[in-house]
């Protein structure tokens, strides 16, 4: 029997194990943006600064200190969520993230849930009819879906629903209730489902087909269990680990990459557009905050995946 205390220890150990990862990510982001990046002192002084002015400002900004001290300082600020101010509007980066993150979550969640569920369903149908016509159709369409770029899907949906049919708004985020939310979230949701379903269906199908070879599945079939019962109770359980790991792992990558593309194209004021604008204008504090934050999100996602696998499969011990 596992006690609650044991579980807590497991989570703590897993989070501690992700420390080298967090250090690596922050080190890379710090090196790229601060060490190699353009010097903010130059930008602040404008054209033709004297060498003395430059040195004075760099001392004031703490740029004359050694690399490792500045990195430690950056880590300290990241840990205390003191993320500084944006260079363009002067808003606190923390406030900026708090304002934009919920919008991105609302934007991406329906597509993520719908896309995963649909892919799992299609993969189950394909795996059940393995080698048959339905299986070949689903795997064939999956490859087509994988070959369509996210960009193509976005423009096509914009053309069909925004320009031809005019059913949904294709720009902005004027959400003030459930109806306007549905109108604004429809095209991004469709785009997300189309972009992810090919990859996910293919992966889920491969895992399910593998799990179907197990002896207990054949026994269940011999006893006359129906497709739904066999798929959910016997097959899915046998391959829950890789499927769940993949779903959880894809969250941080999706949260940043998906929102970056859709929000910048559809002018939706989420974290993706803020990041995009920061990339174009070279807004150092925002880029560093987003990179650091996504690394934390990744570490949490890895821990959650481990935890879920443990809960689902008692064979994985609290190692």
């Amino acid at each position: 029997m596992t006690s609650r205390f044991e579980l807590l220890g497991f989570v703590t150990r897993k989070l501690a194990a992700s420390l080298p990862l967090l250090l690596g990510v922050t080190l890379i982001s710090f090196t790229l943006t601060v060490h190699f990046g353009p010097d903010p002192a130059h930008a602040m002084l404008g054209k033709n600064p004297t060498a003395a002015d430059l040195a004075a400002l760099q001392r004031e900004l703490g740029q004359d200190r050694p690399f490792w001290m500045r990195y430690a300082d950056y880590l300290h600020r990241l840990a205390t969520l003191d993320l500084g101010h944006t260079e363009t509007s002067g808003e606190k980066v923390r406030d900026l993230l708090a304002r934009t993150m919920p919008i991105s979550a609302l934007l991406l969640a329906p597509g993520f849930i719908l896309g995963t569920a649909l892919a799992l369903f299609l993969a189950m149908v394909a795996a059940w009819h393995r080698g048959g016509r339905l299986d070949r159709l689903i795997t064939g369409v999956s490859v087509v879906g994988m070959s369509l770029s996210f960009v193509i899907i976005i423009i096509a949906l914009q053309a069909v629903f925004g320009v031809w049919l005019g059913w949904f708004p294709v720009r902005g985020w004027a959400v003030d209730g459930p109806a306007s939310y549905l109108a604004h979230v429809t095209i991004p949701t469709l785009a997300f489902v189309f972009a992810s379903i090919g990859y996910n269906t293919r992966f889920f199908r491969a895992m399910l087909v593998n799990a179907m070879n197990a002896g207990h599945v054949r026994t269940a079939r011999a006893y006359g269990a129906g497709p739904a019962r066999i798929m959910f109770r016997h097959v899915l359980r046998g391959c829950l680990l890789p499927i769940m790991t993949r779903i959880v792992y894809s969250v941080p990558a999706l949260a940043i990459s998906g929102s970056l593309l859709m929000e910048s194209h559809f002018s939706i004021p989420g974290i993706g557009r803020v990041t995009y604008q920061a990339i174009l204008s070279g807004d150092q504090p925002v880029i560093m905050a987003v990179v650091g934050l996504s690394a934390v999100l990744f570490a949490v996602a890895v821990t959650v995946a481990d935890l879920l696998c443990r809960l689902a499969d008692p064979r994985i011990r609290l190692a």
Binding site: P20, L21, G24, V25, I28, S29, T31, L32, T33, H35, F36, G37, P38, P252, A253, I256, S257, L260, L261, T275, I279, G282, I287, V290, V291, S294, A295, F298, A299
Partner: peptide, 24 residues
């Protein structure tokens, strides 16, 4: 493995942006 895990943890488009930023 640590290097691989670290690079995989950074969202790809952000990483490209950071490299583009560093190389000006």
């Amino acid at each position: 493995l640590w290097l691989k895990g670290t690079i995989d943890a950074i969202p790809f488009y952000l990483f490209v942006a950071a490299v583009a930023f560093a190389l000006q």
